[in-house]
Amino acid sequence: MSDPFYDDLRPVPAFEAFCRAGVYVPVPGDWCVGVADIANSTQAIERGAYKTVNMVGAAVISATRNALEGKAFPAVFGGDGASFAVPAEAEQTARGALRAVQAWARDAFGLDLRAAMIPVSEIRAAGHDLRVARHAVSDGVDYAMFSGGGLSWAEAELKAGRIGMEPAAPGAMPDLTGLSCRWSHIRARHGKIVSLLVLPAPAADPADFEALCGEVLTLTGTLERGGHPMPEEGPDVSWPSPGVELEAKATGKGKLALMAETLFAWLVLTRGWRPGGFDPVGYKRDTALNADFRKFDDGLKMTLDCDAATLARLTGRLDRAVADGVARYGVQEQEEAMMTCIVPSVMQSDHLHFVDGAAGGYTRAAARLKGRD
């Protein structure tokens, strides 16, 4: 991609900045947005397949990233789907990758991944905007933050069937190199793992919603490391890897080969071996640093390790915001968080880790929104 727009955006370290409209810049009008969402994901959760749901959602970003040969582009993971934006020159490449993920989700897991590509100009013609910023979570990784309502509108259009596209032919396989889910689930240490969505009410004053988000972050700021669900030293790892069968379907590797590979990785991470100069302690710490446990995607979306008293204060404040017509919110409580990862190379620090609750997470929180339209 030759368009320098996203490369030229300066990543901002302070997450609190993303509550303010001024940190975002408009996505160029000739760019295109990709949206993807698993139909009937709640039923998949009831079948115990939420790890699979997360893997498919992350695959949207992984396949697009690989198709674009690692070029930076804004994307956000949503639990049961993902959204992204690319310049016009990359639209066909991204479309092909997205259709391949649809086919793979159908063929490998029987999941209906709805997907669409839509021009940013069409989003604005419908009365919405698409603005983006970059949040630096570490020296090696940043994540896109979105505002303006454009992504939410496109996702609603997708779910309503007004936009969409057909999957690739049966047997099509996206390039999912680097996609994995090898880490153990992360147990809550302070109460519950809380998946929290805070979205603006349809007629909310933007200034009131900004102020509310600031209050929410002040409350969660009293939690250890802002509610980060992962210990600072990184997550635990077990063997056999809980996601080995999913990774086999993502990479095309045989299960026995992956079992051997993950056994070696487990030994390295638990025994402190340093093959080829690899630093297992540093890698685990980078994993914690690089995790996307909170994001701004037309609203606050967070996976928090939260005690009962703080959660009560949060929900009490949010109930008042619902009554005042400022916000809608949804909460899902669970015992554990989980991660799905994109690791281009274990020797670099730019690995990505998408965090969600392990018992329905963002999907169940969205189904429980208070203050619906």
Results as ranks from 00 to 15, higher is better:
Gly164Leu: 04
Cys306Ala: 12
Asp286Asn: 15
Leu311Trp: 02
Cys32Gly: 11
Tyr24Lys: 09
Ala14Asn: 14
Gly227Ala: 13
His190Gly: 12
Asp142Glu: 03
Pro26Trp: 06
Arg162Pro: 11
Ala44Ser: 15
Arg124Ala: 13
Gly110Lys: 11
Gly79Ile: 05
Pro280Val: 03
Pro344Arg: 02
Glu232Gly: 14
Ala204Thr: 06
Ala88Trp: 10
Ala201Tyr: 01
Ala82Trp: 00
Val56Ser: 09
Asp292Phe: 11
Ser138Thr: 03
Gly214Ser: 10
Glu46Gly: 13
Ala67Phe: 02
Ala323Ile: 12
Arg124Thr: 14
Gly22Glu: 14
Ser41Leu: 08
Glu245Cys: 12
Leu219Pro: 01
Ala49Ser: 14
Leu9Ala: 12
His351Gln: 05
Leu267Cys: 09
Asn54Glu: 05
Phe73Ala: 00
Glu261Gly: 11
Gly191Phe: 02
Asp292Thr: 11
Ser180Glu: 09
Gly234Asp: 01
Arg182Trp: 06
Tyr143Thr: 08
Ala288Val: 08
Glu89Ser: 03
Asp307Met: 04
Ala321Lys: 02
Pro119Asn: 03
Met1Gln: 00
Trp239Ile: 07
Pro167Phe: 01
Pro240Phe: 04
Thr177Ile: 06
Gly78Pro: 03
Ala75Lys: 06
Gly226Leu: 07
Ser180His: 09
Asp350Arg: 00
Thr251Gln: 04
Val331Met: 12
Arg285Asp: 05
Glu333Pro: 02
Pro4Ser: 11
Leu9His: 10
Ala201Asp: 05
Arg372Tyr: 12
Asp30Ala: 13
Leu9Tyr: 10
Val355Thr: 11
Leu311Arg: 00
Lys192Arg: 15
Asp3Cys: 02
Ala133Thr: 08
His351Pro: 02
Ser241Cys: 06
